[in-house]
């Protein structure tokens, strides 16, 4: 019986990881909240009705209700870690986009560069070459 519980636990971890690691959105948020609610109810009921948990635990082949609850806690925690990681990565991506936009805007864009950015040395191919090089427009895009 214990092996059944172990298999179920591993399966639950895999399913949770699968859902947490891919996709996001309202449906996943709802699932997360339902799971959280189930966990809260389980935790609260264990305080008042420990014998139910022990019975349930025996059903699965686990000795004590407290142990069963611990397993649930571990599962929930792993789920929490996975979602936090995902959220953190998403947030990091957003911050990066913002910072990148700010950085590039502040630098004034690349087209200002040849004239403004390198006054120390005349850069032959750019200044005089630009206007006549524009109309044909063939060579640069030949690739």
């Amino acid at each position: 019986m214990l092996i059944v519980f172990q298999l179920l636990a591993v399966l639950a971890i895999a399913v949770a990881a699968f859902f947490m690691l891919r996709g996001g959105g309202a449906r996943h948020q709802a699932i997360r909240r339902i799971l959280m609610m189930v966990f809260i109810i389980a935790a609260a009921s264990s305080v008042f009705l420990p014998q139910i948990w022990t019975k349930l635990a025996n059903l699965f082949g686990v000795a004590r209700g407290a142990d069963l609850l611990l397993y649930f806690l571990v599962l929930t925690f792993l789920g929490f870690v996975a979602t936090s990681y995902r959220r953190f990565r998403a947030l990091e991506g957003q911050v990066t986009e913002l910072a990148r936009r700010i950085a590039i805007d502040r630098a004034g864009g690349p087209t200002d560069v040849p004239s403004g950015g390198s006054p120390a040395r005349p850069t032959p191919p750019i200044r005089p070459g630009d206007p006549p090089a524009d109309p044909p427009e063939g060579p640069p895009v030949e690739k």
Partner: peptide, 21 residues
Amino acid sequence: TVVEHPTNLGQGASLQTGFSF
């Protein structure tokens, strides 16, 4: 030309900023 990240983002982010630029 220098493009300044307002905060440290990492080398990968720097490369992508250079590409976008």
